[in-house]
Design a binder for these strands. Structure first.
Lengths: 176, 176
DNA sequence: CTCAATGTGAAGCGGACCTTCCGCTTCCAC
DNA sequence: GTGGAAGCGGAAGGTCCGCTTCACATTGAG
């Protein structure tokens, strides 16, 4: 593969990642190409169609997330959760949920997703047992709300919503 | 105005309200007509175009919200906030933010919005002074996150996100 | 009974987006 | 330096989808 081609492929992936994170799944191929400083034609030389681009990015992102989760199991669960939130806010990750409904999930993506779900559920339950996370919600519910909070376009680890949500997970006596 | 015409107009508004609340601003005119049990043509007899329909609904919704807010000023501020959240979850209200960016705001809508913003800011500040709402966030920030939490399509007053968020607003010692 | 008001939904229209295609440019092995 | 394969660009084509119109059928009120 020629050096410039490799460079351009990386630019495309980077631009797509950034735009998806910032503006959700509605970004057009033309916008991605433009953000990468390339023509649309180039984009299609590297990825046969939109679906291929999305799938490629989603798999890479999910794989990284799974590995991050696995690695963070060594920490105390609450630390691991905080870490996860920060990680998700830094990595342009919003796309993964935005994209969930956009294209049919490949087997690989489905497998990654269920692995991540399982790891996260385990982590949350440990946090409930060991770190005082509220127990009036199931791990699925908590995972779901973290998902909403984190995977907004433009979410940040220190924005008010995330902050308040994390604090709300640790209250000892929830409002009736 | 003929009786059936009035009835159909109400059906249209009701259907549009419900669909917007449930699925956001992307609902098509045809879906609205179908949900109202009418043809698209009828819809266009009552509203010259999509914008008119949206505007009409938005103004009615915002007016009701403003009046509700005004009325709730008599209560203790925390009660009023809880009340507001419940009100927003019951009323199909999600559309108002979904729609915010969709069509240029009419002067009337702009006025209503700023009235509501002012009322809400006042309420939040009172809750901070009198009811122990966390003071490390500005009233704009809190209003913003309430907005995100409440105006999701399908939001409910007792769903996990709303619950956790409200509890998170009352923590005495936020995480560093 | 009359007719104006109202309802209908298929068809027209427009715009946005994905994708293709082919002439031009760039890289790199020799 | 040079030939040619690989890569690039972006206008043009095709498709899809939602908004809007309109000619005709239906209905309600006097």
């Amino acid at each position: 593969m020629r050096a410039d081609a490799r460079r351009n492929r990386e630019r495309i992936v980077g631009a797509a990642l950034g735009l998806f994170a910032e503006r959700g799944a509605g970004v057009s191929m033309e916008e991605i190409a433009q953000a990468a400083g390339l023509g649309v034609g180039t984009l299609y030389r590297h990825f046969p169609d939109r679906h291929a681009l999305v799938e490629d990015i989603a798999e890479a992102t999910l794989t990284a997330l799974r590995d991050h989760l696995r690695a963070s199991l060594a920490q105390p669960p609450w630390e691991a959760l905080l870490n996860l939130v920060r990680y998700c806010a830094e990595q342009p990750l919003a796309l993964v949920t935005s994209l969930a409904g956009t294209t049919p999930a490949s087997p690989c993506r489905a497998r990654l997703t269920s692995e991540i779900d399982a790891l996260l559920a385990g982590l949350i339950e440990r946090a409930q047992d060991e770190d005082g996370i509220r127990r009036d919600l199931s791990s699925e519910q908590i995972a779901g709300l973290l998902n909403v909070a984190i995977c907004r376009p433009g979410a940040r680890a220190d924005d008010p919503l995330t902050t308040v949500l994390l604090d709300g997970l640790r209250v000892s006596r929830p409002t009736a």
